[in-house]
Simulated assay, not measured.
Amino acid sequence: MAGNRPTRGATLNRDSVRFNLPEREADGDWLDAQGDIDGEAPKLRTTVTIEKPRTIITRNQSPDVGFDRSINPYRGCEHGCIYCFARPTHAYHDLSPGLDFESRLFAKPSAAILLRAELSKPGYIARPIAFGTNTDPYQPIEAEWRITRACIEVLAETGHPLTITTKSDRVVRDIDLLAPMAARGLAAVALSVTSLDPRIAMTIEPRAPAPERRLAAVRKLADAGIPTHVSIAPVIPAITDHEMEHLLQRAAQAGARTASFLPVRLPHEVAPLFRAWLDTHFPDRAGKVMATIRDIRGGRDNDPNFGTRMRGQGPWAELLRTRFHIACRKYGLNGDRIIVRSDLFRAPRGPQGDLFG
């Protein structure tokens, strides 16, 4: 039944086998009886739980990731992207990386307060803070909760650098903050666009804004003087890989300065969710898709190793890289790097800022 629900990504809601959690698949006979009596099952509703963390900046030491700290205002993501590598994190809450991940969300309304406190600590050294490294900072609930915006306000006030990665055109709401920061070299934004085909986009990213809206956002950001990057992440073999050149052309036309791509990754519970999604939406090519992914990932569904996990390996991965580089040269992308500066930071004022400033 879950596979028939509209506007959701995962077709399953199984719990994590890594933590021996019980399965929560609905009983088919009961669902049939419910349908006879009550009609169709109600749509799966999104719920938001307030989370009260002690800190908000997450530190990272991965050698193949270009940032050492990040902020994630939310856990879970309503965009419902089937390939999302963050899905397995919901298992740590005894929730399913499947439908729970995209419908049972957590918000951190104290994020800006915690951020101000952490930036006020003696000896804090500023380096770019990355938003959107795990779940999307501009997913639909940001319109109401405005946690991402509150954090940007703190960073703008203190001259602290930031980068944002999102699949949403909602980021243009905050141009009033980001444009002045960009003028000082403090901000850059990446928009992720995986397909220009609305039908494919709705299938792989059911609640994310349409691709044309994201490209329009690239144009608005670029026109506002904000360095903008387009990420083709992920590239899914036999489903979206044929669009790479056209995507890069459209990105350049929209005003993006740089671009990147990432072959699809299927860590932990993402692999069985992705396989079930393929069987539902692309049964005619499911075998070909998985065979190509395994070729890129050294014979496995996923390669977790630093260095190769972001790039892939083998002939398919090399072909994608070659096509990407040729297209970037053709359309004038990646002529220079987008760099944000860290030398303008000043600790927040207020009780703690005055005490340590």
Rank of each mutant, 00 (worst) to 15 (best):
D241G: 00
R214C: 10
Q249E: 15
V264L: 06
A233Y: 08
L191I: 15
I204S: 06
I236S: 10
R219N: 09
A251T: 10
F261L: 08
P211A: 06
I236R: 09
R184D: 03
R257E: 14
A187P: 04
A252G: 15
L266C: 10
A190H: 05
H246F: 11
A256Q: 14
I239V: 15
T228N: 05
T203E: 12
R199M: 12
L248R: 06
L248F: 05
I239E: 12
A254L: 05
R184Y: 00
V230D: 12
D241N: 00
V235W: 07
A216K: 10
A238N: 12
R250Q: 14
L247F: 07
A208W: 02
A210W: 10
R214M: 11
I200L: 15
S231K: 11
L262A: 10
E245R: 13
P206V: 02
Q253Y: 01
A183T: 03
D197T: 06
A190T: 14
K220T: 01
P211H: 04
V270Q: 09
R184W: 02
Q249I: 10
L191S: 11
R207G: 07
P234D: 00
A217F: 04
S231V: 12
E269G: 00
H268D: 15
R219C: 05
S192V: 14
D223E: 15
A188P: 08
R250Y: 09
H268F: 15
